[in-house]
Design a protein around this nucleic acid. Sequence first.
DNA 1: ACCTGAACACCGTTCAAGT
DNA 2: ACCTGAACACCGTTCAAGT
Lengths: 224, 224
Amino acid sequence: MGLVATERLDRQRVIDAALNLLDAEGLDALSTRRLGAVLDASANAMYWHVGNMDNLVGFAADTVFAELELTSGAESWRDRLAATARELRGLFTRHRWLTAAFSANPRIHGPGIVRFQDHLLQVCHQAGFTGFDLDWAGATVFSYVIGDAWGQTPPPGSEPADTAAELVEQVKTDLADYPLLLDRYAALAGADPDDVNDASFEFGLRTLLDGLQAHLDHHITGPR
Amino acid sequence: MGLVATERLDRQRVIDAALNLLDAEGLDALSTRRLGAVLDASANAMYWHVGNMDNLVGFAADTVFAELELTSGAESWRDRLAATARELRGLFTRHRWLTAAFSANPRIHGPGIVRFQDHLLQVCHQAGFTGFDLDWAGATVFSYVIGDAWGQTPPPGSEPADTAAELVEQVKTDLADYPLLLDRYAALAGADPDDVNDASFEFGLRTLLDGLQAHLDHHITGPR
DNA sequence: ACCTGAACACCGTTCAAGT
DNA sequence: ACCTGAACACCGTTCAAGT
């Protein structure tokens, strides 16, 4: 079963093997026994290196955060913040287990995540936010991106998503009382899901940036 | 073990028992065997009524959506949208298993959820959004709220969260290279976590509403 | 220091059998 | 129609024992 040459284990090899399982088959596919098989080791070999399963998922999450490309260029804060948000969104789409991992264990921390948090705050600071407004501007962007990722197509391991057309058919009876909603379902059924997701994300991102701009403008010209 | 008088089971009694477990102890506490014990039935009695575990969680999620109070008053769209967002946020804080339930199984649907979706679209429609902008305005608000809920204090069943002060102590070494971030952690450590969460949510909500307002204004005065 | 084997206390789900 | 008991194929974790 072992797909890796049998060498000494170390923390990084355990994490890498876990990442392969997570990316390929999702959070449910990561078990101590499957991991042991991939590593040509027993199911419990990992305990010495990462402590337990929650830690392992935390290490994996932090590892993928470290792969984010964070530009430090001299563009406008608006472009930098948009780029940061898109980078984060890409992370969640490449690693669909991430949202589930965080909602099962919100206390994941590590150098990769800290590095991203700092970058996000730096960009918001460049925009002109200070004090608690700085935290909240960053949190707002982060919340929006992860909320958007949450609504994306399901992770690997689940059956393929129904087409939008099938979905309309299924809920048509439920929607009898909601003509507006039925109309929108029908419209969305005719569009490419990925295009819809992208356009929806960009709409919300632009909305957020406009709102942050408005906040900065009000503070320059005095409080409302 | 049975905490309920032994009567005939039906779908609603199974869902209600599941909700009690979910609200009290979180998603991990809901198992077929514990549910059976609460209902004075065997572990598999539920299968006849709800099909399987994913369905049961879906029914529970839809049930709590149905409890949302959706005002249809004649206030401004801005107040109505804010009220809707706060209602949704309250749902996620009262039922902390909801985010995990959705990220484990994004295909949860039902009349309660459909009712809420329609309400959200109605309010955005009142604001003046049409076509895909209508969908995206609704999706933006929804994404923000669920993303915010995702960052809230952990669900029941997990150990109590570290205080912010402890957290600062833990990550102080990781944060040596990030003075701005360290500064913010320290500032947040001195504040009440609930107050911080509330203020952060309101900041982001105001930001979103300002951004949506800007979008509507631009469309009235013509495209940019 | 690093890993195994066996064991413990759990899971979700199926299915024949009961009423 | 509704439910049980037993079974199957899994889990995470612990721990004595090995090297």
